[in-house]
Simulated assay, not measured.
Amino acid sequence: MLRETFATRYVTPLREGGSLPGIVEADDLGTYVMKFTGAGQGRKTLVAEVICGELARRLGLRVPELVRMELDPVVGRAEPDQEVQELLKASGGLNLGMDFLPGSLGFDPLAYEVGAEEAGRVVWFDALIGNVDRSWRNPNLLVWHGDLWLIDHGAALIWHHNWPTAGAWAQRPYDASDHALAPFGPRIAEAAAALAPLVTPALLAEVTALVPDAWLEGEHGFDTPDAVRAAYAEVLAARARTIHEHITVGPPTADKPSQAPGWLTGGHPLPTPSTLDDAR
């Protein structure tokens, strides 16, 4: 189970995309980016964050710690924005927190060099989860203490918005031409050889078990939360076996709009410590 915390103070909203995450402080004295069940696509976005983030972590990629975060809407009563107030009221109870990385910088390919091996692992992973939101337009990558960190996976696992089509996703190709790490010559075959064998039924069962039942209950077409978990695992297991054969990396597009659904995106660089101080 993910570690559980309680939000004690709502600091400031992050006004990007449709999910409107917020910076909060918690009872463990930590600071987190909080994602809400009452925002955008609600619990499906949080489910994707947990499954993808924890799968990435187990595959050796860097992801900020994810925690279960209980919210009492009263913590935001001083927030003047009516939209934020409504969001907090709609999100009472269990939500998701992502560790805030103080001093982290948004990834800039001109300022930070990524090795071909690491680039290959990230591209392969994004192909596995069907992540449409790590492009040069919106990398959803941070640099912290000299290392590359992956954030914001709410736009991945796109098949869970239409489960009858999920089976077809196992072989669906992944165009990495606009991927933020495509310019670094990602070694995709090498990454597949190293990572695909790790995506075992046991690993997928472990990762999907971290999703709270409350976020899976009532899913159309499924009788139990465990049945939903098994469906996620089935697609990911099948995709891991051959996805490297269906990844293409061509010239990046110059003016094509982002393919990420607008209501799922929201992964922009986190605020700097100075902007966080201003919000206090």
Score class of each variant (00 low, 15 high):
Val132Arg: 00
Glu54Trp: 04
Asp28Gly: 06
Leu2Lys: 09
Pro64Val: 02
Pro269Val: 07
Gly185Ile: 06
Asp278Val: 12
Leu55Ala: 06
Pro186Ala: 03
Ala227Trp: 13
Tyr10Leu: 15
Arg57Tyr: 12
Ala254Thr: 15
Thr242Ser: 13
Ala227Arg: 15
Pro21Ser: 06
Ser135Asn: 02
Val235Gly: 00
Leu204Phe: 14
Met34Trp: 02
Val132Thr: 10
Leu105Ala: 05
Ala180Pro: 00
Pro212Arg: 11
Ala205Leu: 15
Thr12Gly: 13
Ala214Leu: 12
Ala230Phe: 09
Ala166Glu: 10
Pro269Met: 07
Gly106Lys: 14
Glu25Leu: 14
Leu216Cys: 09
Ser135Asp: 03
Ile247Gly: 04
Ala156Asn: 04
His179Lys: 08
Asn162Ala: 11
Pro109Phe: 09
Pro212Met: 07
Thr224Ser: 13
Pro269Ala: 13
Thr275Met: 13
Arg3Asp: 15
Ala26Asp: 15
Glu86Ser: 04
Gly60His: 10
Val67His: 04
Gly250Pro: 11
Ser258Met: 10
Leu101Thr: 05
Pro252Thr: 08
Met34Gln: 07
Gly17Tyr: 04
Gly103Phe: 10
Ala240Gln: 03
Pro212Gly: 10
Lys35Ile: 04
Ile23Ser: 06
His244Val: 12
Ala26Thr: 13
Arg137Ile: 03
Leu236Cys: 08
Gly266Glu: 08
Ala56Lys: 04
Asp108Lys: 14
